[in-house]
């Protein structure tokens, strides 16, 4: 692209693109990066571009609207603190995984001119603002939560069957590593097939961590021993019969 005089006097830029391929996407990013390098006088910038590689220091920028999906949030957050002329900030993220935003704080203490911040789907771990700033902050579409604390999951587990709990255990690390305070295994569940052998063994493994183990396995000693031995074919470490 050749432009006489360049883009040095550009004060407003809005860029919307719908790339058809990865190649297109890369071209768009390169073009925008080049353009931003030229446009030193920008006052308004609105970019609908996923994965913006970098943001130059825009010394006159007052209104900034960015899409921070595609892992751009941690890269751009430190740059934002240098944009001291900024008056309005809009950050959007359409990602399904919010881990990067959650791990990144947004320190805007240096931005004393800031009047409005809107975070749409981009949720930082912390947001710090200049003291005395009159500010309207809107956080919308906050789809990602940190997991519930283990104590709450433990309380929830009391209302669930072994099968349902095993499903929930696969949700996240907190549920997988949870110490169940109480494990119940009933003979009739095994007989009726509502709890299979693998399920009972799964529960017995969890029982290593339990404070209370309730085995409702009526019958004579031989039957009880046979049931437990069968269950313990996949014997957890430290268990002996």
């Amino acid at each position: 692209m050749q432009v006489s005089g360049g883009f040095g006097r550009l004060t407003g830029l809005s860029f919307r693109a719908s790339p058809q391929s990865e190649e297109d996407k890369e071209h768009h990013k390169m073009a925008v990066a080049w353009l931003l390098g030229q446009a030193k006088e920008l006052v308004f910038l609105s970019l609908d571009l996923v994965g913006l590689p970098y943001l130059p220091h825009l010394s006159h920028i007052q209104h900034l609207q960015l899409d921070v999906s595609g892992g751009a949030f941690p890269r751009l957050a430190p740059v934002l603190t240098t944009l001291v002329t900024l008056r309005t900030l809009y950050l959007e993220s359409t990602e399904t995984q919010g881990a990067q935003e959650e791990a990144t704080g947004l320190d805007l203490q240096t931005l004393t001119e800031l009047e409005s911040v809107m975070l749409d789907g981009a949720v930082p771990s912390a947001l710090t603002l200049a003291e005395g700033t009159s500010l309207r902050v809107t956080v919308s579409q906050m789809p990602h939560h940190t997991s519930l604390p283990p104590e709450i999951w433990q309380a929830i587990a009391r209302y669930l069957s072994a099968r349902d709990w095993a499903r929930v255990a696969g949700v996240c690390k907190t549920t997988w590593q949870l110490r169940l305070p109480e494990v119940r295994i009933k003979q009739n569940e095994l007989r009726q097939g509502t709890l299979c052998r693998e399920g009972a063994a799964w529960l017995l493994k969890r029982a290593q961590l339990a404070r209370e183990l309730l085995l409702d396995l009526p019958g004579d000693i031989a039957e009880l021993q046979a049931t437990l031995t069968a269950l313990m074919q996949d014997k957890p470490r430290g268990w002996n019969f």
């Binding site: 959650e102 990602h144 997991s147 949700v171």
Partner: peptide
């Protein structure tokens, strides 16, 4: 469950 509560698979 993850979708329901917006929990992140980690």
């Amino acid at each position: 469950v993850r979708q329901c509560f917006g929990l992140v698979k980690n």
